[in-house]
Every structure is written in C-alpha cells, then in structure tokens.
C-alpha cells in the first residue's frame, strides 16, 4: 500500500480518461444503450477517483472519515445498477412504441 502514493497520478489519469471517454461516448452515441454505457464509464471514473484519493489519504488525516471514499464507491456501483435497470426499462418502452432506440429519432417533443 505504501507505494500507492507514488502511483497516484496514474490512477487519477486513468480515472480521468474513463470519465472523458464516457462523456464522449454519451454525447456522440446515437443508440440509447450506447449513451448509457458512456454514463456507466463516467460513473466508474468517479468511483476509481474516490478509491484512489482515499488510499492516498489513509493515515494522513486523523479524522473518522478514513473509509468514506471506499464506501462512496460502493454506493456509486449500486446506484449505477439501479439507474441502468430503470434506463433499460425505459429504452424497452421506447422500442415498443417506435421500433428504434436511436436517441436522434426521439423527436416528437420539440418547439
């Protein structure tokens, strides 16, 4: 564990890359499933950030929040699963009503 601080920049850069690729995918993808996969990547980037920062801070700060980062990342994973479940249910409904999950084709509401 002691060596982790040395490698911290690598973890952070990796997390940032995950987040950026996720954002690009979410913005550029046309299929709704692709968009949610992008969002999933963004969330994983954030979760990795929490774990990396927490490992860096372990023992440095003397307060009671020394595990919060890890717990936070667990919550992110759980909520990502919930969000995916709801999002996929909605995508199914969209497919049922117009036989496509292309987000560009969702254009009934505009003005």
């Amino acid at each position: 564990m002691a060596g982790l601080a040395t490698y911290l920049p690598a973890y952070l850069i990796f997390a940032l890359l995950l987040f950026s690729f996720g954002l690009i995918a979410a913005l550029a993808r046309r299929s709704a499933i692709g968009i949610f996969m992008g969002v999933e990547l963004m969330l994983n980037g954030a979760a990795l950030n929490f774990v990396a920062f927490q490992a860096l801070r372990k023992g440095v700060i003397a307060n009671d929040s020394w595990l919060h980062g890890h717990i936070f990342s667990l919550f992110i994973i759980v909520l990502a699963a919930i969000e995916a479940a709801v999002a996929l249910a909605i995508v199914l409904r969209v497919f049922g009503s117009r036989q496509t999950i292309d987000a560009d084709r969702a254009d009934q509401l505009r003005g």
């Binding site: 979410a26 709704a32 949610f36 969000e83 999002a87 995508v91 409904r93 969209v94 987000a103 969702a106």
Partner: peptide
C-alpha cells in the same frame, strides 16, 4: 410520455 422519460433519463 415515453420519449419525455427517455430524454429525462439521458
């Protein structure tokens, strides 16, 4: 309504 929900979730 379904489209509103899709846009909201995205």
């Amino acid at each position: 309504s379904v489209e509103a929900s899709l846009k909201y979730v995205v």
